[in-house]
Amino acid sequence: MKFAVVVFPGSNCDHDAYYAAKHVLGQDAEFVWHKDSSLGGADVVILPGGFAHGDYLRTGAIARFSPVMRAVKAFAESGGPVLGICNGFQVLLEAGLLPGAMLRNRSVKFQCEHVHIRVEQTDTPFTAACRPGQVLRIPIAHGEGNYYAEPDVIERLEKNRQVVFRYVTAAGAVKPEANPNGSASNIAGLCNERRNVVGLMPHPERACELAVGSADGLVLFESVLKAVTQGAFLGAEASPKATVTAR
């Protein structure tokens, strides 16, 4: 199986996502430059963390205009699994692939620390190997991760079971004190209606080995490996190779 890790000029977790896919999970992985218009036949696309274009304006606001994003959209529309991590999640929001927006953290400060998130849905390609309600200890590292959407949007997300991850206590309870940044309904991650596009603020790629503090994030990578090899959760067309070239 092959991962495409999209590289915007200010991506800085691109190597970490690549390392997790290639060296920890042991799958093929390839960097795709943001000016490229093809995803090079990948089975999974990761939009990594970082500051895509410096993000002095609004996180991810410029990235959606990068040529590669047309290919990512087309790949997503054909049912291909797309994971946006941190800044990648922000880019997915800006690109309209997921609903809502990010505000500055409630603390008005950048926060880097381990948090607990609960897996709310296991019928997405990135949670297929999780137990329902599984609690993962994974780090966050962001200044703008305070998820916001209009109440009716939140309601729709809940109704459609699109909230994939929620900030919880170590015991798995949704509590205000477990919410690190003020996100609406403790939302840490979402999927689209088709369930193949997932975005989350925490960094699973930073939690793939015990040596670096936690291996709880590896299950997201194992999930997509399972999903792709078994052809599960990929929408109508099974396993669409990312040959889509935008024009």
Binding site: F110, Q111, G213
Partner: peptide, 11 residues
């Protein structure tokens, strides 16, 4: 906590 001390996954 304000410093990203984990990026590059070497820490």
């Amino acid at each position: 906590r304000q410093y990203d001390h984990m990026v590059r996954t070497n820490t």
